[in-house]
Simulated scan of single mutants.
Amino acid sequence: MSDNSSQVSPAVLDLYKMAVEMADRLSSRRGTANAFFLTVQTTFVAVLGVATPNLAKSPWGIGLTVSLAGVALSATWWMQLRSYRDLNQAKFKVINKIEEQLPFKVFSDEWEYLKKDPIRTWRSRYAELGASERAIPWVFAILHALMFIGRFWG
């Protein structure tokens, strides 16, 4: 609980509700974007897997173009995730600032508990979803590069 136990202004409470709703919507949009990119990448890799015998017979430039398209898609996905991360950080800074005027600091306290929870003895700190989430586009980029390289030895 914060030291501020006085009556909270309705305007501040409305701004807080709006900021929390906007952060929730942003997380939802990020999830939808991830589902889109994961579907496209998985489909792309599956189609390439089926088409590999035909690609092996095609000029190397076609294989390079297809691989670069997959890498470009991965880079776009990663940049979008980075943008969502930056937007979320800004939104939670605003939410935390508003919470200074509220009797409870729901998000600030939750974050502190996640960072310091003694129950998690097998790891030293909270593993943010964004860290693993941003690794997935790199996995696909490497997969596309390996598929191109494998074309020459296959």
Results as ranks from 00 to 15, higher is better:
L13F: 15
G49C: 07
L26R: 12
F37Y: 13
T32F: 15
K17D: 06
K17C: 07
V71T: 04
D14N: 13
A72P: 01
L26S: 12
A51F: 05
P10M: 03
L38A: 15
L64M: 09
T65P: 00
S6R: 03
M22W: 06
I62P: 01
M22R: 15
R25W: 12
A23E: 05
V47I: 14
N34H: 09
V71N: 01
G31R: 07
V45I: 14
L38H: 08
L38R: 05
S27I: 01
D14C: 04
V12D: 10
S67T: 11
G70Q: 02
W60F: 12
S28P: 00
D3K: 05
T42W: 03
V40M: 09
V47A: 09
S9N: 10
R29S: 12
K57R: 14
E21K: 13
T65I: 10
L13V: 10
V8I: 14
T39G: 15
G61P: 06
K17R: 13
K57Y: 03
G61L: 12
P10V: 04
R29M: 11
F36V: 13
A33N: 12
L48C: 14
M1E: 04
P53K: 09
T52L: 14
L38V: 11
K57D: 10
M22C: 03
L26F: 06
G31Y: 02
V40Y: 02
D14I: 03
F44P: 03
Q7L: 10
S2V: 01
A46G: 09
N4D: 09
F44Q: 01
L26V: 09
V66S: 01
T52D: 12
R29H: 13
A56R: 14
V20P: 00
A23I: 02
D24G: 10
D14T: 11
T39S: 15
Q41A: 15
R30A: 10
V71S: 04
R29G: 07
Q7N: 03
G31C: 03
G31V: 04
V71K: 03
D14K: 14
S28M: 11
F37E: 00
V66A: 08
S5W: 00
S9W: 02
W60T: 10
R29L: 11
L15W: 05
G63T: 08
A72L: 12
S67Q: 04
G49L: 04
N34W: 05
T39R: 06
K57G: 03
L55E: 07
T52R: 15
S28R: 13
S5L: 14
V45M: 09
V50S: 08
L38D: 03
R30K: 15
M22Q: 14
P59Q: 08
L64E: 00
Q41N: 13
V12S: 08
L55P: 08
A19S: 06
P59K: 04
N4Y: 07
V66W: 02
